[in-house]
Design a protein around this nucleic acid. Sequence first.
DNA 1: CAGAAAATGGACCCGCAAGTCCAAAATTGG
DNA 2: CCAATTTTGGACTTGCGGGTCCATTTTCTG
Lengths: 210, 210
Amino acid sequence: MQTLTRKGAATRQRILEGAAELIREHGVAATTLDDVLSATSTSKSQLFHYFPGGREELLLAVARFEAGRVLEDQRPQLDELTSWPAWEAWRDKVVDRYRRQGRLCPLNAVTSHLGDRTPGAQAVVTELMGRWQAEIAAGVRHMQAAGEIDPGLDPERAAAAILAGIQGGVLIQMSTGQTTHLESALDLGIAYLRSSRDQAHQVTGSRSAP
Amino acid sequence: MQTLTRKGAATRQRILEGAAELIREHGVAATTLDDVLSATSTSKSQLFHYFPGGREELLLAVARFEAGRVLEDQRPQLDELTSWPAWEAWRDKVVDRYRRQGRLCPLNAVTSHLGDRTPGAQAVVTELMGRWQAEIAAGVRHMQAAGEIDPGLDPERAAAAILAGIQGGVLIQMSTGQTTHLESALDLGIAYLRSSRDQAHQVTGSRSAP
DNA sequence: CAGAAAATGGACCCGCAAGTCCAAAATTGG
DNA sequence: CCAATTTTGGACTTGCGGGTCCATTTTCTG
């Protein structure tokens, strides 16, 4: 497989997206290669042709595919965190996105399945988190420049906390089916930012561990 | 298996804890029943004697076992959120606990493996989250009674947000290996509570979805 | 101490799903 | 249009791991 015909690329993509959809609906453990084949009208030889590493390589590709969608689904709001209404709009977009997604987080499912072997899976998540945090931090800096947030507040640390709240909210949603934790976490994070302008703060620097 | 001999109960416990340890170290997918047997010096018939439901029942038991440890590991600090230093001590305890645990969250691993079938797994997590949130909320109420937190703030909602931050922090730690997100989330949550006394707040009531 | 019930050892079965292989069909490039 | 390359179909192999079974030993009960 040195070169990929247009037809070949299309087939590869069909397999990838079909696998992603099955995993989104039924989970990783319940998705076999044969399921993917029948769902995408392909054959074993095709799958192993385009994913020589077999199941593991396919799962990693799905992880990358899903990771790529996460930030895209938050645009354009994520890029425009330049006013409080914009932050609220972003909040609503995030809540809506994960409400739609339902109780299965494909990215968490895949990485938790690939586990500690296949370091590539963790790398995908790590990179996603890094970019996500950077975008939020950029929004914080923008509001600082506009005088809406205490300039002494550490943007990266605040962004890290908000990001953690989102992840945890989604995680809890996976068990409970409720988005209330996600909403509360985002609301608290934003409220914290808003309130920062008016007073001195404790969370501006790093803190030593116990 | 109507009655359990003392010896029988010990064997059952040995299997359970051995399985939990293997899962904590190598993950669910990489832990087979045979691994558990050889690690605990037991035989197939014993495992199926004490866990007639086989692998699934064992995994569920491990989930319960791990869930039971979570809150216990936070005591007594979790019960005594009655002053700001006490909150900080609890924060340190949580960070320390998950720093020790390393990159694998056994509870998340198990539930994510059992997935949507086996509703019992999600129930275990849901109950744990409920109790955890209740304990945090109790701490918030205590501080409200002491005049240290704005009485108009919704304790359950604040506790939900803080809990989400913890969960997300742990989740991110699983990929990155760093506890910075967990620390930031806890610090932001506590800072928010502390700052609440001094001003009006936006996050006291429920908010409609988009 | 005797009989019942529980605990144990380990061989065996079996289905599933990952992965291999080869030959045929389709596509590409000159 | 022809040769090279890529794409495709699907049968086949294989190993792993969950689950079954029965004989034997140990423990409890009265």
